[in-house]
Design a protein around this nucleic acid. Structure first.
Lengths: 121, 121
DNA sequence: GCGTATACCTTGTCAGACATAGTATGTCAG
DNA sequence: CTGACATACTATGTCTGACAAGGTATACGC
């Protein structure tokens, strides 16, 4: 993907779960949202996104439903399951700690560390 | 690894390069430093660290030299090559943009976004 | 001497990122 | 009304990276 080589491995699932937190979305919409909302950083090809979705679904984090939109087009809508919501919380926490660790090493700025660890400046 | 499951994929090489930025270190020392300096978040087993080092060496980002320490123990010291220094700069930048993207989605706190993107609060 | 810490190496497995390719349908310019 | 283009999902196969498990070898404390 354009996902900054392999730096972002593991970021994909979290980003998808986070987007679905607000409400259901379909695959193509997710791809577009990831692209736009992250200025391309989290953009991923369809061959990355769809298998990722099937994987999350197989593990019970999201569930899908086929519907026909007003446009007449068939779309597969995905939404978070309670299990997925839990995983999102865990992953978000893990990401914050990872950002904190990278800050501690100097890879990210110190502000990241404070924000991630909830420490007052 | 303890590296927060696979969330941190890609973080390993950057962390190692960053540690080597200050000066040479040997494998065991790197493992220990990663563990301590990140409060365990970036800790990785030897079976992850050593292959990672061989990989970075094969790609010319680091170079190694066997030496005998005062303790009498043989150690393989690694140091950054100019190429590795360049890659560290690129990767650091990519990480900041990734952190910025995750912030934009709400996975990381907003302070991360400001710091990562260099935007005034 | 014998356990523990230090220090490095190897093999094999599995999951994830992706390129490539394919199917099918709605929209719109000409 | 037709062909190009955008939308939308699926399938296959390759490559890399994370890791568990299992070695080897040496220094040091007791």
């Amino acid at each position: 993907m354009r996902l900054e080589s392999d730096l972002m491995r593991g970021a994909g699932p979290v980003a998808v779960l986070k987007l679905l937190e607000r409400g259901e979305m379909y695959g193509y919409e997710l791809a577009d949202a990831l692209e736009r909302r992250s200025q391309g950083v989290l953009a991923m090809g369809q061959s990355t996104l769809y298998p990722l979705l099937y994987n999350l679904e197989a593990k019970g984090y999201i569930e899908a439903e086929w519907r026909v939109a007003d446009s007449g087009r068939r779309r597969k809508y995905y939404r978070l399951t309670p299990k997925g919501r839990k995983r999102l919380a865990t992953d978000t926490d893990a990401w914050k700690r990872l950002a904190g660790a990278m800050s501690a090493l100097g890879v990210l700025g110190p502000a990241d560390a404070r924000a991630s660890l909830g420490v007052a400046p």
